[in-house]
Write a protein that binds this DNA or RNA. Structure first.
Length: 259
DNA sequence: AACACGGTCAACCGCTAAATG
DNA sequence: GCATTTAGCGGTTGACCGTGT
């Protein structure tokens, strides 16, 4: 038995939120901030549980939420991230400022899943469905146990997280990126972030040499980011790294499989 | 007009991990 | 170290809406 529902206390309201409730919650949080969700409904004068308030804030009232449908580029990026992270929606959502995990999860379940199926791709494994049939009985060497799959996923995630240093020091990822640089992939990734571009899309190598990754965007005269640009750069780097790691993993997968 | 059906998405449920006493 | 509380997460549900018959 798990914990009892938090909203089963008598008198607590459930279901859709009214404009008045939204108003109360929004005003309370904007004026007081959030210390403890459990106390929020009481202090804000709401007949809701804290959990319900939290969800309403995160998924609907937060001022930094981005409204509107997800773009094709965002969808593509979700697919890429899902291939690495699985159904870890909050992790995936962290790559999309202003989008919620719930929104991305819903979008995946109602649209992307179908789109992939129409393209003959299994949304769970991200492999072609025909190929899956062909692989019904893979070699023992190709089978990964649940633990191995989990380790691999963590490894990838740690790899991405550790590789988000904007200064690109002499680390493993830096070397891999330079050795396996894929212009098309880079351009594709760069385009997905085009709305946030306010920086010079180039990276500096240890040799002092600089790779200019500009496509149609103007390059600035230096590569030092102004503080206000740090967030968009971080988003951009996150996007690039996830796509690049995905590409490397795919390459490794096929090398291992067919060599 | 009435009904059935399917798609969408806000909200809830149940669980785990982290925080706290 | 243990029990309890809380925040956060992913899965699921159900109300609502548009479309087809």
């Amino acid at each position: 038995m798990g914990r009892q529902p938090c909203c089963d206390r008598v008198g607590l309201k459930r279901g859709p939120w009214t404009i008045e409730e939204d108003h109360k919650l929004l005003h309370f949080i904007l004026n007081n901030g959030i210390q403890c969700w459990r106390t929020v409904p009481k202090l804000a004068g709401l007949q809701r549980c804290g959990k319900s308030c939290r969800l309403r804030w995160i998924n609907y009232l937060r001022p930094d939420l981005k409204r509107g449908a997800l773009s094709k580029a965002e969808e593509d990026q979700i697919i890429q991230l899902h291939a690495h992270l699985g159904n870890r929606w909050s992790k995936i959502a962290s790559y999309f400022p202003g989008r919620t995990d719930n929104e991305i999860k819903n979008h995946w379940n109602t649209r992307i899943k179908k789109r992939l199926q129409l393209l003959g791709i299994d949304p769970l494994t991200h492999q072609p469905i025909d190929k899956e049939k062909y692989q019904e009985e893979p070699d023992d060497t190709e089978k990964l146990s649940t633990t191995e799959t989990y380790d691999k996923r963590n490894e990838t995630e740690n790899f991405i997280e550790n590789a988000t240093d904007i200064s690109l020091p002499n680390n493993e990822y830096h070397n891999m990126l330079c050795e396996n640089f894929d212009v098309d992939l880079w351009n594709k990734s760069f385009k997905t972030m085009s709305s946030a571009t306010c920086y010079s899309p180039s990276i500096s190598l240890e040799t002092g040499e600089s790779i200019n990754l500009s496509t149609t965007t103007e390059s600035s005269s230096n590569n030092v980011a102004a503080p206000a640009e740090q967030d968009s750069i971080q988003q951009w780097m996150d996007s690039i790294f996830s796509c690049a790691v995905n590409q490397l993993e795919e390459d490794l997968f096929f090398l291992r499989k067919y060599n």
